[in-house]
Amino acid sequence: MISNIPALHFLIVGSLMFFIGVYGFLTRKNIIAMLLSAELMINAVAFNFAILNRYVFPVHLEGYFFSLFIIAVAAADAAVAIAIIINIYRNFDTIEVEEVDDMKY
């Protein structure tokens, strides 16, 4: 059983994972790599929800369903993001985020 592991350890790992995602999102130049970082963040959030549900309200399932819906939203989000990326690649011949700045002022 995991009951003898404190919730704090899981939460620390979840938060670190989230901010590693943030770091990746800010530094990566490749749009797909940025998408990977975003997925990392989404996963971290879902993970934290599941953990808190498991430890704080084990009888109810609110956090559980939140995780479930987050995964579904992540799926939708990834599908649209990849469609956009492919379109960008087709139009700009690159997926470097710094090259794609046609919509500035």
Binding site: A72, A75, A79
Partner: peptide, 21 residues
């Protein structure tokens, strides 16, 4: 769900797009 949708679906999708670009 995590394995089928996330690991199975999304990551495969991403890998496809990587191979395309």
């Amino acid at each position: 769900v995590q394995i089928t949708l996330y690991a199975g679906g999304i990551v495969v999708l991403i890998i496809f797009s990587i191979l395309l670009t």
